[in-house]
């Protein structure tokens, strides 16, 4: 029996647009074992971001069932899902999503502070040191470059020691060099902390570095296979 951290069972998602019913995802099912790194790829409009939102409990599926970290998130309230994310989930976004009025350190501390962790400051400083920003802790996001902002974002994502980390195009807004550095950091931390990694990306080179690749097309899974290195 596989120890799954994320299970999707016959997931469908549709939106009503005007008088039309728009089916974005159809009959999606898969299991992600703990510790695995997975990439979700596909052309624009294939439903990748919608799927990520559903997996992380940011949105509700129209049909089907999702289990995240041993919990059926379907019937859970928004607050219960928020608590679940706070404890077990990390996020990295394409546009970093740092709060401009908080310093780098304060941004990283948020998940730990929400958990009431007394060591929030120490852990966050260590993580910022780990991502190479020990000397930029008191800088505001606008005083940092894109790559630095994404490193703060990664430090924040790992600050609560998540069991699973979702990354939405984590290198999409970065140049090639910086992107590579961020990828390396992401995978290193993933291995170090035994975190499950789910990455949505266009970048097939990045996808190839994960253990498994799920390819979407027209809202359905076109391909679900383990990579050579997986």
């Amino acid at each position: 029996m596989i120890d799954s951290i994320l299970t999707l069972n016959k997931i469908g998602k549709s939106y009503v647009s005007g008088d039309r019913n728009l089916e974005v995802l159809k009959d999606i099912s898969y299991d992600i074992p703990r510790g695995q790194s997975v990439s979700i790829v596909g052309p624009s409009g294939s439903g990748k971001t919608t799927l990520l939102g559903l997996c992380a409990g940011l949105d509700r599926p129209s049909t089907g069932e999702i289990r995240l970290c041993d919990a059926d998130i379907g019937p859970m309230s928004e607050n219960a899902k928020a608590e679940l994310r706070n404890k077990y989930v990390g996020f990295v976004f394409q546009n970093f999503q740092l709060i401009p009025s908080l310093t780098a350190l304060e941004n990283v501390m948020i998940p730990l502070e929400l958990l009431g962790d007394k060591a929030a400051s120490t852990i966050s400083k260590e993580l910022l040191d780990r991502v190479g920003l020990a000397d930029r802790m008191d800088h505001y996001p606008t005083q940092l470059s894109g790559g630095e902002q994404q490193r703060v974002s990664i430090a924040r994502a790992f600050s609560n020691r998540p069991q699973i980390l979702f990354a939405d195009e984590p290198t999409g807004n970065l140049d090639e060099d910086t992107g590579e550095k961020i990828e390396r950091l992401l995978f290193d931390l993933n291995r170090e902390l035994q975190t499950t990694l789910v990455i949505v990306t266009h970048d097939l080179e990045l996808a190839a570095k994960t253990d498994r690749m799920i390819r979407l097309k027209g809202g359905r899974i076109q391909l679900d296979e383990l990579n050579q290195n997986g």
């Binding site: 940011l58 928020a82 706070n86 976004f93 709060i99 948020i110 929400l114 958990l115």
Partner: peptide, 16 residues
Amino acid sequence: MSAIAMLRCIGMTGRQ
């Protein structure tokens, strides 16, 4: 809005 959405995303409740 985006800051609030991010806070909600990483686990802050609506009430918080």
